[in-house]
C-alpha cells in the first residue's frame, strides 16, 4: 500500500494528524491509528479488515486540521458531518480508498478462532490459509453497498477489484423477515432483542453522528426519558432516542450494530428510517454536502402528507 502511505505522508505536510488504520499485532486485523509523522505513516494499511468508520473521531477534532482515510461509506459520514456543521470541510483532508467490502470479523473469529490469519484481495478470502466463501462473511452493510467509491475525497487511493456483491446472507434474511413481521410480532421481537441490552452505549460511542457524546439524553435526569435500569423498556427507549436523533443523519454505516457486544440488529430500525426518509423527501444522508438536514427545514409546497 505504498500509495496509501504516500497519500498519508503528503497529507501530514498540511495536517496535524491523519486518521487511518494500522495492523493490530494481536489479531492481524486493521485497527484505528492516528498518524502524526511520516515514519509512523509507513505502518498504514487498508484491507477488508479495516472495518471502523474513522469519521467518528472528527467532531472531537473540530478545531484542528486533520486527514482521514475513508471508505465509501465512511465518506458519507464525513459529508453528513459537514452538513451537520460538526466538521468544516476545509479543515479535513479526505483520503478515499476503493473498497470491496469489509469483513464481519466477529463472525470469522467466532468460527475460526480469535485473531485467525486472514488474507483477502477483494475477490478471494483465505482464512487460516484455506479459501472460504467471501461474500457471506462481509459486513451486512457491504452486501447492499451503494457507496463503494468515496463521494468526497481530496486524494483517492486504490480501486475496487470486484463488482458490488449480491445482497445475501443471514443478516439480510433477518432484515427480510423483519419486514414481513406484523407490528405485534415486531413488538415481541424487540422485547426479546432489548432484553439482551447491557446498556454499554457502545452503539452510541461508535456512531459518527452521535456528536453530543457525554451530554447524551440517554443518561440524563433532565430530561428524564430513560430510567436508569437495565431492562427491555429502557433499552428500547435508548434505541428510540438513537433512531429519533439520527433521523436524517444516519448514513447507514452500520457501526452501531458492529459495535454492539450482544449483537442486537440495531440497523434494522435505521434502515427502515432511512428508507422512509428517502420515500418522503428523496433524502439520503451524507450524499449531498450542500443539503440541509431534512428535519431542520420544511417545504410547504411539497410536504403534503397527512389529511390535507
Amino acid at each position: 500500500m505504498d500509495e496509501l502511505v504516500k497519500a498519508i505522508t503528503a497529507a501530514l505536510e498540511d495536517c496535524e494528524l491523519v486518521l487511518g488504520w494500522a495492523r493490530d499485532p494481536a489479531t492481524g486485523a486493521g485497527r484505528p491509528e492516528r498518524f502524526t509523522s511520516a515514519g509512523q505513516a509507513q505502518e498504514a494499511i487498508f484491507d477488508a479488515t479495516c472495518v471502523h468508520n474513522l469519521a467518528v473521531h472528527l467532531p472531537r477534532l473540530k478545531q484542528r486540521r486533520v486527514g482521514i482515510v475513508v471508505k465509501g461509506c465512511d465518506a458519507r459520514s464525513v459529508v453528513e458531518l459537514v452538513v451537520e456543521r460538526e466538521v468544516e470541510r476545509e479543515r479535513v483532508q479526505v483520503i478515499g480508498v476503493g473498497c470491496d467490502g469489509v469483513l464481519d470479523l466477529k463472525r470469522i473469529w467466532r468460527r475460526h478462532g480469535y485473531g485467525v490469519a486472514i488474507e483477502d484481495d477483494g475477490e478471494t478470502l483465505l482464512v487460516d490459509g484455506s479459501e472460504v466463501e467471501r461474500q457471506p462473511l462481509l459486513q451486512h452493510k457491504c452486501r447492499h453497498c451503494l457507496d463503494a467509491d468515496p463521494s468526497i475525497y481530496d486524494v483517492v487511493v486504490g480501486g475496487r477489484t470486484a463488482e458490488g456483491p449480491e445482497p445475501r446472507g443471514e443478516r439480510q434474511e433477518l432484515a427480510e423477515r423483519f419486514r414481513e413481521m406484523t407490528p405485534s410480532q415486531r413488538r415481541d421481537f424487540w422485547r426479546r432483542q432489548f432484553a439482551r441490552c447491557i446498556r454499554c452505549y457502545a452503539c452510541r460511542e461508535a456512531c459518527p453522528m452521535c456528536f453530543c457524546r457525554d451530554v447524551c439524553i440517554m443518561q440524563t435526569q433532565v430530561p428524564h426519558w430513560a430510567g436508569g435500569e437495565v431492562n427491555p423498556k429502557e433499552a428500547e427507549m435508548i434505541q428510540l432516542i438513537r433512531v429519533g436523533h439520527l433521523a436524517g443523519r444516519c448514513t447507514g454505516c452500520g457501526e452501531c450494530e458492529r459495535a454492539c457486544p450482544v449483537e442486537i440488529p440495531l440497523m434494522l430500525l435505521m434502515e427502515e428510517q432511512n428508507r422512509a426518509l428517502e420515500e418522503m423527501l428523496d433524502y439520503r444522508a451524507g450524499t449531498d454536502i450542500e443539503a440541509r438536514p431534512p428535519l431542520l427545514t420544511f417545504d410547504p409546497d411539497r410536504d403534503l402528507w397527512g389529511d390535507e
Binding site: 407490528p183 405485534s184 421481537f189 428510540l240 433521523a247 427502515e272 428510517q273 431542520l296
Partner: peptide, 28 residues
C-alpha cells in the same frame, strides 16, 4: 411545518417499532 415532517416520519416508523400505525394520528 417542522412538526409535519417529524410526525410523518414517526408514523412511517411506528410499525417497525412494533406499533400499529392506526394507533397514531396527526391532524390539523
Amino acid at each position: 411545518y417542522y412538526a409535519r415532517r417529524r410526525l410523518e416520519l414517526l408514523k412511517r416508523m411506528l410499525p417497525y417499532y412494533g406499533v400499529e400505525p392506526e394507533r397514531f394520528h396527526y391532524t390539523w
